[in-house]
Each structure stands twice: as structure tokens, then as C-alpha cells.
Simulated scan of single mutants.
Amino acid sequence: MRKTIISIVSALGLLLLVSQFVISCTTIDASHEGIKVSKIGSDRGASDIENVTGWVFYNPLTSFIEQYPTFTQTKDYDPFTVSAKGGTLFKIDPTLNYHLVKGQGASVYRKYRKELPDIENNILRTIVYNSYRDVANTFTPDSLVNNRVSFEDQVEAKLQKALVNDGFAFENITSNLTPPESLQAMIDAKNTAVQNALRLNNQVAAEKASAEIAVTKASGIARAKIIEAEAEARANELKQKTLTPMLIQQQWIAKWNGSLPTTQLGSSSTMIQMPIK
């Protein structure tokens, strides 16, 4: 029995001694951030963490290497619902683009002690859901449908702040906001009524404008005729004032061709005498 115990202790001691010389090596790609985590000690990885790059040598019995990508990550989450004011439910089908802030890998691991897929499916999903829920609850159903840009801007602002606190950088997100079918039908009917009213108003305005143009045109024609008649009357008046008996006789003489009349006028005179006033 004693020999057995001595053998076991010796074997453990030998294993521990050999383990000090067992070295593994791995390469941290430029698009990743490496984290070397200790397996031993009272904290077992909570404090003994360091960022590593390039070729890394480590003892797999006492430590391990975790790698987080630093390039853009795209996570398409399953749809969920959030409620607007009054309790109307809207479906959100989000796709998040983000990346790890360089130098924050150790902090992320120390805080969550999870691989990136686990962080995405749990921590980040909760952040995304809470951001949509909090913002949606500040909108009425109608305003949420009609002000989607403002809604998404506010969601993005909350996400950006929440993610940077966890060592991640927000890039963008698509919401794919979908209202209930009944609400969408009501909104479509309302929009159709508004469009029809605008079309009728535009038609009435166009017809009114056409009528005013016609009246203006007719008034212009009538005014032109009045002006023309007044001008003609004025011209005739001036002609009457200038047609004196002497002027008429002179015009008659100017047009006479010198031939005497062949018809007896009952007088010996061949010249028609014009009375002179």
C-alpha cells in the first residue's frame, strides 16, 4: 500500500515536472486579438489575462489562448416583438453589424468569460432587445409607423452607447420594423384618403385657375375692343372737325380729271358751286 502511494505521488510529481516543459505554439492572425488566460491561481483567469499577438508560446496545461475577431461581425437575430404606447406590438427582425474595439479583448473576456458566439447570442442580443423596447415605448403606434427614421436613429444611439461600454463598436443595424396587419390596413386607408383629398384639392385649384384665366382673357379681349372702338370714334370725330366745305371742294378739284359733264344740270354753270360758310 505504501509503495502504491509512493508510486502515485512520484507519478504526479513527474507529470508536474514534465508539464513545465510542455510548450505549445499558436499564431494570432492580424484580424484577431489574442488573449492568453491562466488556468491556475486563486482567480483562475479573472486577473491573469494578457493581450498577445503574432506567434505565442504557452503551456496548455497551465494556460490557454482565446481569440476574438476585430473585423466587422454581422449577426442576424431571430425576430422579436416590442410594444408601442398603448401596447400595440411591432415585430423587429434585426441584423447587427459591429466589431471588437482593438485592445478590449482582455476586458471583454474578463467581464463575460465567454467566446464571441456566446456573447452575441446572449449579451449582445439582450442589449439589442432592450434598446428597441425602450425606444418603441416612447412612440404611439401611428407615429412609430410614420417616423421610422427617427425611431431607428434613437435605437442606434442607444446601441452605440451600450456597446462601447462593453468594448464593442457599433456600425449599423437594420430593423425590418413590421406593424400589425390591422394597424397597417388602417394606416393605408388613412393615407389613401389623404391622397385622394389632396388630388381633389389640386383638381379644384386647377379648374379655378383655368376659370380665372378664361375670365382674364375675355376681359382683356373686351377691353381691347372698347379701346379700339374709342380710338375709332375719336378718329371719326377728328375727321368731322377737319372736313370743312373749303377742304371738301379742294379735294373734289384735286380729284377732277378736267372733263365737263355731258348731262344738263339745268344751269349754265358747269362747275358745282359749294357754299362757303
Rank of each mutant, 00 (worst) to 15 (best):
L96M: 06
M271A: 14
G105P: 02
N137R: 11
S210I: 14
E120M: 05
L12T: 08
L61W: 08
S269K: 06
V56M: 00
V204A: 07
A193H: 04
E33A: 02
G34H: 00
Y77R: 05
L17V: 09
W256Y: 06
F168Q: 00
S42W: 13
K277N: 09
I35P: 01
F151G: 05
K255I: 04
P79D: 04
Q264R: 10
I65N: 00
I221S: 15
E156A: 13
S267G: 09
T263H: 05
A84W: 02
K217D: 13
M246L: 14
E228I: 08
N59T: 03
V82G: 04
V155I: 10
G266M: 00
Q20C: 04
K277F: 08
P60M: 07
T216K: 13
G167C: 06
V52A: 00
S7K: 14
E181L: 13
E232Y: 15
T244K: 05
Q184V: 01
P261T: 12
T138N: 11
N147D: 10
N59D: 01
N122Q: 12
D118P: 05
T192C: 04
L100D: 03
V164K: 10
Q250H: 05
V145G: 01
E237I: 08
A193S: 08
M1L: 12
I226Q: 15
P94K: 07
P179D: 06
K114M: 13
V164F: 06
K75D: 07
I226W: 15
A222E: 15
Y58L: 01
P141G: 01
Q160P: 01
P60R: 03
D93L: 02
P141S: 10
F170S: 03
T95Q: 11
L260D: 07
G54Y: 01
N172W: 09
I227L: 15
R223N: 14
R199H: 07
D29I: 06
L14G: 04
Q73H: 06
Y112G: 02
K39H: 08
N176T: 08
D153H: 11
V194E: 13
N146D: 14
L96Q: 04
K190Q: 13
P179I: 00
T72K: 11
E171S: 13
D43S: 12
D118Y: 09
C25Q: 13
R223C: 06
V149E: 13
I65Y: 00
G34Q: 01
S107Q: 11
L100R: 04
R223A: 12
I40M: 12
L163N: 00
L177H: 06
I92F: 05
D153T: 13
F168D: 02
T4A: 15
D93F: 07
G13M: 14
N146C: 06
V128P: 01
R2M: 13
L144V: 02
L96F: 06
I276G: 04
P69Y: 01
G105E: 05
S83C: 11
N121Y: 07
A30H: 11
P275R: 13
E115I: 09
S83H: 10
D142Y: 14
T70I: 12
T81Q: 14
S182H: 11
Q73R: 09
E232L: 15
S268D: 11
G86D: 03
I123V: 15
F21W: 10
S47W: 07
Y112A: 01
I127H: 02
T4Q: 14
L89T: 06
A46G: 03
